[in-house]
Simulated assay, not measured.
Amino acid sequence: MINSGNNSGPTIHKWQFWIDRGGTFTDIVARQPDGRIVSYKLLSENPERYEDSALEGIRQLLGIDSGDVIPTDRIEAVKMGTTVATNALLERKGEPTVLVISRGFKDALRIGYQNRPKLFDLHIRLPEMLYTRTIQIDERMGAHGDVLVALDEKAAHRDLQAAYDAGIRSAAIVFMHAYRYPDHERRVAALATEIGFDQISVSHQVSPLMKLVSRGDTTVVDAY
């Protein structure tokens, strides 16, 4: 459904789009080349009619058929926000994820920082972890870049393949000191790509920070 507003501004030469994709509806506000503001609303999920709601909305506003190539030369800017990831976290409907971490740190994210907001609470409820499986990798980089344990690529490939065969398609790779020395993470990410994982999040790209736990938590969320 397209609505035209009365707002007008200085004449521009191309379309501008602002898109909000929610779990149910996608809302689009656009500025036409003549400066007029229009809005459009459609279902976020409608697989019988289109694959992507944002692209479909842009096509409708441009007046082209579904499935046609969008003429990018007519578009100046597209800005998009979405609550899809937030909803997935709140509802725990993300992708099954495997945590790939340096050997010896399997439970590091579960242990966390041992924060005790209720110091005398005898019934502590730990948060549910987002990853469903953990792979410990034989590797270790020192704090100054020296290789303390060489990366066992053969074992890493074997364990990643087992996770993939179990139906997991998302991997979060978090190694000690990888924020500064990411070679081992890159090599394991290459193995995951070779196997066919759809989503591969590596901590040195997602959150290049010193602390393993915070870096790992952010990487898992990105993969999930």
Rank of each mutant, 00 (worst) to 15 (best):
T83R: 07
Q60K: 11
D152L: 02
D107S: 15
P47M: 04
Y113K: 02
V100Y: 03
S66C: 05
F105Q: 06
T97A: 05
P47L: 15
A155L: 07
L148I: 15
E76A: 10
D73W: 14
E128A: 12
L109T: 04
L90M: 15
E153S: 09
H144T: 10
N115D: 08
L89C: 08
R125C: 00
G67Y: 07
K118F: 14
G63I: 05
L151H: 09
A108H: 02
D152M: 11
V147H: 07
T83L: 10
Y50W: 08
N115T: 13
N87S: 04
P127Y: 11
T83P: 03
R110M: 10
L126R: 13
D152R: 06
G142Q: 08
S44W: 04
R140T: 12
A85M: 08
G145V: 13
P71H: 14
Y113M: 02
F105M: 15
D52G: 09
S66K: 07
R103L: 02
M80S: 13
L90A: 13
A156V: 09
G94C: 10
R92Y: 13
R116F: 01
K106P: 01
V78G: 06
G94L: 13
K154D: 04
E76P: 01
G94V: 11
H123W: 00
L160W: 05
D138K: 13
P127L: 11
E45A: 12
G63H: 08
A54Y: 01
A156Q: 07
L130D: 00
D152H: 01
M80T: 05
T86L: 15
I58Q: 04
I101R: 03
S53G: 00
D73G: 10
H157G: 00
A85T: 04
